[in-house]
């Protein structure tokens, strides 16, 4: 079962479930942020996009302290796959599960548009359906999505191959064009683009399935 965490202010929680359930046929449940444990049959956790706690203070700063985050951290520490999309990515960075932080977009505007991305690696559980170097198109929609890391941290992240997605044309001022980054262990992934909004041919294309489908494959194969 795929657990989609529902924070107060989550917006893309239902969309993420739709992509998993209606498009990929993967069972999913909404898990309320006040839960202190994940359901026992949880095989993967997704932190959806939105404005948890209104994004007041800093994006993701308060979502990080939701009771459920303790359980998510334990799940990740035990090697369980965790994906944070947009606001979910911001929460994972704030929680220290992913390196770096997300800053205000370079031009200060919220940006909603489909962007071209380069998949850097295909040998991960989040990108196995794509090919390394493949150019894919997925929408972004955020006001604070410029990934930032100090040079030393960036060098370490690059060296370990943690960058999985890069913008072909940088829309927001992210350092090194980073759009999606993985943790060292390879089981936690955060990305600003919204794969759940590119899962149907007539509604933005299906490149998002390259990401979400990879995760579903990994979980399904893991069960065998």
């Amino acid at each position: 079962m795929f657990a989609v965490i529902q924070f107060p202010g989550s917006n893309d929680d239902r969309d993420t479930r739709f992509a998993l359930k209606s498009v990929l046929g993967a069972p999913s449940e909404l898990v309320w942020h006040k839960s202190v444990e994940l359901p026992s049959d949880t095989r993967a956790v997704l932190l959806p996009g939105g404005f948890s706690y209104g994004d007041y203070l800093r994006c993701g700063a308060m979502g990080r302290f939701s009771p459920v985050m303790g359980a998510v951290k334990r799940f990740a520490d035990a090697g369980g796959p965790v994906v944070g999309i947009c606001n979910g990515f911001q929460i994972l960075c704030e929680a220290g599960l992913l390196p770096g932080a997300l800053l205000r977009n370079r031009d200060l505007h919220f940006i909603c548009e489909t962007v071209a991305l380069r998949v850097e690696r295909s040998d991960t559980i989040f990108t196995s359906r794509a090919a390394a170097g493949q150019r894919i198109h997925i929408p972004i929609k955020h006001g604070e999505g410029a990934w930032f890391a100090e040079p030393e941290l960036l060098a370490r992240v690059e060296e370990r191959g943690q960058v999985l997605l890069r913008y072909c044309e940088n829309p927001n001022g992210a350092v090194a064009d980073v759009a999606g980054v993985m943790n060292e262990a390879g089981n936690v992934f955060g990305l600003m683009p919204h794969p759940e909004h590119a899962v149907e041919p007539a509604l933005g294309g299906t490149d998002g399935l390259l990401i979400l489908g990879s995760l579903v494959d990994a979980v399904t194969e893991g069960r065998k």
């Binding site: 700063a61 308060m62 770096g100 932080a101 930032f148």
Partner: peptide
């Protein structure tokens, strides 16, 4: 822990 993010 809350008011600032030490990364930035």
């Amino acid at each position: 822990k809350l008011l600032s993010n030490p990364v930035i």
